[in-house]
């Protein structure tokens, strides 16, 4: 994989996926940061990993399964006490058009 040159377009595309606004004045700064970090990261491209299985988690154990029981009581009041905006038990957001 050749080194990535982080363009303004790439910054904006990644920002869109990340749901972040990057001000016009900051785009070059982010592009420069990303370029440097990716250059650091790209050192690993020289390592031969052809037969190596990816390691997602340092634990070799397998997932324990939980009994199918209702253990969580209704705590709506408590949770919604710290919500930005609610009404009638619903969380409110600007109108979503499907």
């Amino acid at each position: 994989m050749p080194p990535i040159t982080v363009t303004q377009d790439l910054v904006l595309a990644v920002a869109e996926l990340s749901q972040l606004n990057i001000d016009g004045a900051d785009i070059d700064g982010y592009a420069a940061d990303m370029t440097k970090v990716l250059a650091l990261v790209e050192q690993m491209h020289g390592v031969d990993t052809s037969d190596i299985a990816p390691m997602s988690n340092p634990t070799d154990a397998s997932q324990q399964l939980r009994a199918d029981e209702v253990t969580e009581p209704d705590q709506r009041e408590r949770f919604q006490a710290i919500a930005p905006e609610t009404d009638g038990g619903f969380y409110l957001v600007p109108r979503v058009v499907e």
């Binding site: 990261v41 690993m44 491209h45 390592v47 990993t49 190596i52 299985a53 990816p54 390691m55 997602s56 340092p58």
Partner: peptide, 11 residues
């Protein structure tokens, strides 16, 4: 994926 492979090498 590459990073996860390297992770195994380090381990």
């Amino acid at each position: 994926r590459k990073a996860q492979q390297i992770r195994r090498l380090i381990s």
